[in-house]
């Protein structure tokens, strides 16, 4: 069953300018994105910087208001809930950020940081608070005495563990992890990934795992959604990605990623041009400017997501040619 159903989600940020500071245009951060998140899965979201991953992730847990579209959680439309109605979801849905340091209040000890959220959502009675915090800290692989230290006293990897502890403090079911290991060295990255895997199993979490690193996604996630310039261009089981990716952008991402084996050298796929700005998004498919397979139709019309096989959706005129015109799926 889908734990979360996202339909036609859009986020446009107004851009102001000129002497009157009028709105002179919009950043199309997320454009018409639809997908489901299954209970207990880890859904990877991959794409280059600025493609809208963080904006999407924050919308899912209502840290950012969508411009339009709907998000259903366990069947309930949470898109329009007000502050009070949203309260139970604030407990159930959490986020882990890339840079744990900037997301942790430097003036609070780890204990106070955690206590805030635990008390606010009344997770445990006051008398059990200290024990709960100690267990939480141990759970994320820190020593119990970490509770009375400040964030700056920890290394990057340890801070990320604190960020994870804070997210777990409210006993959530659904966590958006936004580049949680991108700032970490590879040996520390492995520690944190393992921790996330363990916690996910132990608490039966559902994860949306955002990363620009395809290798991490391929190792860690069940399904992957590839984004380009605010659009979801392909969605499929992670294990099929290497062989089954159909969208030219997904293929380019795969081909541009160096392989960790000097005996397996091959020319990296070179995409021409730069990642375009989401300020003036072209009509039609957003990838036309860099796509090696572009045809005229791509410049005119945004291709719909077409189902290529079970659980494999591709939004590309060329890749979907000949594929039976299935319904536009989520």
């Amino acid at each position: 069953m889908a734990l979360m159903e996202v339909r036609n989600l859009v986020k446009r940020f107004p851009v102001r300018g000129g002497v009157l500071n009028r709105v002179i245009g919009h950043v199309h951060a997320v454009s018409d994105v639809s997908f489901d998140v299954h209970k207990g899965e880890t859904l990877g979201v991959v794409g280059e910087s600025g493609c809208g991953k963080s904006t999407l992730g924050k919308m899912l847990i209502r840290l950012i208001e969508p411009t339009s579209g709907t998000i259903r959680y366990e069947g309930k439309d949470i898109t329009t809930l007000d502050h009070v109605e949203l309260m139970p979801f604030r407990r159930t849905m959490q986020i882990i950020f890339q840079d744990p340091y900037s997301s942790l209040n430097p003036r609070l000890t780890v204990r106070s940081l955690l206590r805030e959220a635990i008390a606010f959502h009344r997770i445990v009675p006051r008398a059990e608070m200290d024990e709960y915090i100690t267990n939480l800290i141990r759970k994320v692989g820190l020593r119990a005495d970490a509770a009375d230290k400040f964030p700056h006293e920890f290394s990057g990897g340890q801070r990320q563990r604190i960020g994870i502890a804070r997210a777990l403090a409210t006993r959530p079911e659904f966590i958006v992890a936004d580049e949680p290991v991108s700032a970490l060295d590879v040996s520390i990255q492995a520690q944190v990934l393992n921790l996330l895997m363990d916690l996910k199993d132990e608490f039966g979490l559902t994860l949306v795992f955002i990363s620009h690193d395809l290798k991490v996604i391929q190792h860690f996630c069940d399904r992957v959604m590839v984004m380009y310039l605010g659009r979801a261009v392909e969605m499929m089981p992670c294990l099929d990605l290497d062989e089954q990716a159909r969208h030219p952008y997904s293929k380019a991402l795969l081909g541009a990623n160096p392989i960790d084996d000097p005996s397996d050298r091959r020319p990296l796929t070179i995409l021409q041009g730069d990642v375009p700005s989401p300020f003036n998004v072209p009509k039609g498919c957003p990838f036309t400017g860099r796509c090696p397979e572009v045809i005229d139709r791509c410049r005119e019309e945004m291709p719909p997501a077409v189902s290529h096989s079970d659980g494999h959706l591709v939004a590309c005129w060329v890749a979907s040619e000949g594929v039976a015109e299935c319904q536009r799926g989520a």
Partner: peptide, 15 residues
């Protein structure tokens, strides 16, 4: 400790 692509290592704990 580098994450690996491919079926064999998928979803496994990393050394």
């Amino acid at each position: 400790s580098i994450p690996k692509r491919g079926r064999r290592e998928h979803g496994k704990r990393l050394p």
